[in-house]
Design a protein around this nucleic acid. Structure first.
Lengths: 213, 213
DNA sequence: AGAGAGCTAGCCAAATTTGACTACCGGCCG
DNA sequence: CGGCCGGTAGTCAAATTTGGCTAGCTCTCT
């Protein structure tokens, strides 16, 4: 699964109640369209799918003023919250070469208690090291590297990425252990959503990298 | 697009003529199922699609001995070769947060002349630096970092990944410039496919990381 | 000789993702 | 006042991806 479900669940949860366009807007605010598949089609699809599965509750809203398409507001259910936390824990520890799930999880990590987040991040480092060992053991056999020719560069790249990822995670662990950020149960949380009517500084009109391609 | 097209085109090209299962086997040999979406369904789909688009030529093979499903062998066309080289060039330079396309391109980079590969890799470094500048400029405004709360860790992670990727690419450039590997037009190329009947040391029976999850 | 395991080769339905498209409204410009 | 631009809210068909399924062999025990 991609990161879309976590992103959508997290966005709805922070609002309490949100319709599709609000979610879409939040994800854009977070820059999610740059590092994940958070495109309109995917977002609306995920909302409907998760409503069907009981993770979200759909409220049909009467078209307020003029015609327009029928709006639907979503609210997260008990079951949806469980799924949300499960995904969050999973993605914080998973090292599977897709950086988007980690990125999404970083955005929500403060929904967990500090101690748990630390434990998960340490688990993440362990997983990376385990993976690294597996690569070097299986793909760099006794005959020595080089027998793979340029193909060895692929393994080299994997190993380099793993090392870099582990190093970064260790840095994050230190910052969190040192008291950075506000985690669950520690008072007023940092809110990354826009209030109704608040101007979106990251919305249209703001050049994002990649727009010119 | 994912890396699947480049992988499939490259595999068919190295064989000269290959049927689906051969391609599937090569990709497994390269470990592609671990870092890309190279699953049977995707491979067979890509073969058919590209045959329909004229990138591959499909030969119906009469069922050799007993019944069995009708085999199809594929051969790359002129147009397919062009597409192959275009994808290769593109993926060697593209820095778009999906490591699988780079990984796939690394596997085939020796199909280009050494000088061109070097130029593309240098272009890649430039792109990464450009991207890094965009992130730090747009997402770390005058108010200073920290106003984003833990969300700033996402940008921090991006920047760290970019730096790590650039550093690795510079290392590769040095190795290639120093004469490593055999590039197009430099004599006997390194072949990463299995000869008909050769045993696949990476096939089934060999534990891959992730099998135990 | 028959049961079962495992390989070869490939197919398929369901789920997801993409990228473009619709429809309504308000403002603004000449 | 007509036309068009931009924002809001969302839909849709087509392409792709997933994960498991089929069917025919070939060994290997028993």
């Amino acid at each position: 699964m991609s990161a879309i479900r976590l992103l959508v669940l997290g966005a709805v949860r922070q609002h309490g109640r949100a319709h599709g366009y609000q979610v879409r807007n939040d994800l854009e605010y977070w820059g999610a369209h740059e590092w994940s598949n958070a495109k309109p089609g995917s977002i609306y699809h995920a909302l409907k799918q998760m409503a069907k599965q009981g993770l979200l509750l759909a409220h049909e809203i009467a078209p307020s003023t003029a015609g327009g398409p029928p709006r639907v507001e979503y609210e997260i259910t008990e079951q949806g919250t469980e799924e949300y936390l499960a995904l969050l824990r999973d993605y914080l520890t998973a090292y599977d070469q897709r950086p988007d799930v980690l990125t999404a999880a970083l955005g929500f990590m403060v929904d967990l208690p500090r101690e748990e987040a630390l434990a998960l991040l340490e688990e993440r480092v362990r997983k990376i090291e385990e993976w690294r060992a597996a690569v070097t053991e299986y793909y760099m056999p006794a005959e020595g590297p080089g027998q793979y020719g340029h193909i060895g560069e692929i393994m080299n790249y994997w190993v380099h990425s793993a090392d870099s990822g582990a190093e970064w995670t260790r840095g994050l662990i230190e910052r969190v252990r040192g008291g950075a950020y506000t985690f669950a149960g520690e008072g007023e949380p940092f809110v990354g959503v826009l209030a109704e009517g608040e101007e979106n500084p990251f919305g249209a009109g703001r050049p994002h990298y990649g727009d010119a391609r």
